[in-house]
């Protein structure tokens, strides 16, 4: 195939797909485009609310824990692990597609298994992070009384810190870290958007598992092509693409 023959083609003359792609693949692209608008709407809504308030929690304070490291301050560390897990599972997915193009069933199986494991690893990380946020205990000064809060959709313990003078007025040591309630929208946006993304990862793992089973049963060899792997791959890469933006909006900036 040379580029010149593609350019000389009368794509809109009828009798062929003007997109040089199968119906299924074109529709997968349109689904992903609509899904991009859904995620985009969520993230832009989050940005709008964040721009509309005077104070927003510092992600480096909220997301600074790593399993097994107790209360050490390790900003960005756990989310880096999650990001690299997802990038790597994206690579194994594109390698599975590559093996499929070469009609190599064993290769497809191997890389699909690795991709599924990557997806499960990511979901496990997310489960840990959610649990850590929800069950974490933080001292919050609410209407003059101390309360212990976790991060939920209705409670945000990550407001501005209470100054030392006020701590001693309350009979607390100056070293104590006490905050005031932060903007309540924080938890809703974080759990809503990462949850919606995690649901996509979960669906992607399911789709990839079905594709692995179909590969093992030899369905694609019978069909003569591995295009289903390519379509599942498009969805999986989209999930990785969304994470790139979730990572940017919630953890980096």
């Amino acid at each position: 195939m040379s580029t010149t023959t593609v350019q000389g083609t009368k794509w809109w003359a009828g009798g062929k797909s003007p997109f040089n792609a199968t119906y299924g693949k074109v529709m997968m692209w349109y689904f992903l485009m609509s899904d991009a608008f859904t995620f985009g709407a969520f993230l832009i809504s989050y940005g709008t609310i964040r721009f509309s308030v005077n104070f927003w929690p510092d992600p480096n304070q909220v997301f600074n824990a790593f399993p097994g490291f107790g209360h050490q301050d390790l900003p960005l560390s756990f989310v880096s692990l999650m990001t690299f897990i997802l990038i790597f599972s994206s690579v194994t997915m594109v390698l599975a597609v590559h093996q499929g193009r070469h009609m190599n069933r064993k290769g497809v199986e191997k890389y699909m298994i690795l991709t599924i494991l990557g997806g499960i690893a990511f979901l496990s990380c997310q489960a840990w992070e959610w649990t850590h946020l929800i069950t974490g205990e933080h001292k919050v000064l609410v209407n003059g009384a101390l309360e212990t809060w976790g991060t939920t959709v209705s409670k945000n313990p990550w407001g501005p810190a209470v100054p030392h003078e006020q701590l001693s007025a309350l009979g607390l040591a100056a070293s104590e870290h006490v905050t005031t309630p932060g903007p309540v929208a924080f938890g809703g946006y974080f759990f809503g958007i990462t949850g919606f993304h995690g649901f996509h990862v979960f669906t992607g793992v399911l789709v990839n598992t079905i594709m692995l089973i179909k590969t093992r049963l030899g369905h694609f060899d019978q069909r003569g092509h591995y295009e289903m792997i390519e379509k599942a791959g498009l969805y999986w890469h989209f999930v990785d693409l969304v994470w790139v933006f979730v990572f940017l909006c919630f953890y980096l900036i």
Binding site: V6, P18, F19, A21, V26, D240, L241, V244
Partner: peptide, 25 residues
């Protein structure tokens, strides 16, 4: 943000093979 835009471009163009599709698509 600009680095993220580059990441998005490479994921869509190479991993999703959109760069290999015809211009219409």
């Amino acid at each position: 943000c600009i680095l993220t835009a580059f990441k998005a471009y490479y994921i869509v163009s190479v991993f999703m093979h959109l760069g290999d599709e015809v211009r219409n698509l």
